[in-house]
Amino acid sequence: MPMITSNNSPLKRLLNDVGPVDQVAIEERVAKFATRSIKKASKLQGLNLAVSMVDLTTLEGSDTPGKVASLCQKAQHPDPELTTPQVAAVCVYPFMVKHARACLGDSNVRIASVATGFPAGQVPLRTRIQEVKQAVKDGADEIDMVIQRGLFLAGNIQAVQDEISAVVEACGDARLKVILEVSELESYDKIRAASFLAMQVIRPGDFIKTSTGKTSGNATLANNQVMLEAIRDFYLSTGTSISMKPAGGIKNSKQALQYLVAVKETLGDAWLIPERYRFGASSLLNDLLMQLRKQQEGVYQAPWKFSDASSGY
C-alpha cells in the first residue's frame, strides 16, 4: 500500500495539531481588554507592577558604555521622587553586557542580552552559539534569541527546534527568551504554531517573545493574546509554565495596563509577576513614571523631568 503523502508537511501537521485562530474574533476579544477601566489604587498597583516587569532596552548601533551605565542606574532607581520597584532587567547587545555587569554588580536587576545574530538571525549556527556563550560568560542572566523565520516558513520545523535546543544548551543557567518575530510569520495560526514549537524545547520559566522591535510590526494585544493562549494551553496539558514577553510598540501606560488585563484574564494571577511576564520597551518606563507621579502629585510633570527622555518640547 502506498504511503499517504499528502498533508505530510511538518508545518501543516503542526498547524493542524494546535488548531486555527480566527483573526476577526481574536481582535474583537482583545478590544474588550482595552475597555477595562483601571482607576485609583488598582491603577497605582498596575503601574508599579508594569515598572517591575520592564526589560529596559537599548539596542542601537550608537550605544555606548556611558549610555548603558545611565540605563543601569535608571533600572535600579527608576525615579528618585518615587518609591517604585526596580525594573526587571536591562536589555543590551552582547558587546555591552560587560559594561552593564560592571554597573550593576550583584544588583537584583538582571542583564538580558539579545544574541544569535539579532535581529535577523541570518548568521551560521556556530557563530550564534558562540555569541550566546560569550554573552553568558560576560555576565548575562538572560538571552533573547531570534528564530530563523525562513526555516519555519519553509516548513523545516525540526531544524528550528534543533537550533533552539542548541541555544538552550549554550545558555547554561541563563534564562532564554525565544523571539518569534511575529510580524514575519504571516498569520495568527502560525504565531500559535511557532509558540508551541518553541515551548516544546525550552525550559520552565523560559520565555517566548513577540518581536525584535526591528521590523515594521511589533507586539499587539492580538498577537500577545495568541501567545498567552498558547502558553495557557501548553501549561494545562503539560504542567510546564512558560513566561511571556511582548516587545516593541508598547509605549505608554495605558497600553501596558491593557496587556496586564489580558494576562490577568487569560493566565490568571500566577503570571502577574516579573518572572512570568515582561515588557520589552525603552520609552514605556518614563510614561509609567509620569503616570505614577500624576497619581502621587495630582499633576502631570513635563517630559524633561524624567531622565533619558527622548522628547523635550
Binding site: R36, S37, I38, K39, K40, A41, S42, K43, Q45, G46, L49, R232, Y235, L236, S237, T238, G239, L260, K264, E265, L267, G268, D269, A270, L272
Partner: peptide, 17 residues
Amino acid sequence: NSAPELLFGDLWEFDPA
C-alpha cells in the same frame, strides 16, 4: 493536587469604576 490549574484571584483587583 498539582494538576495544572489557573488561578483567577484578586492579586490585582479592579477598583469600582
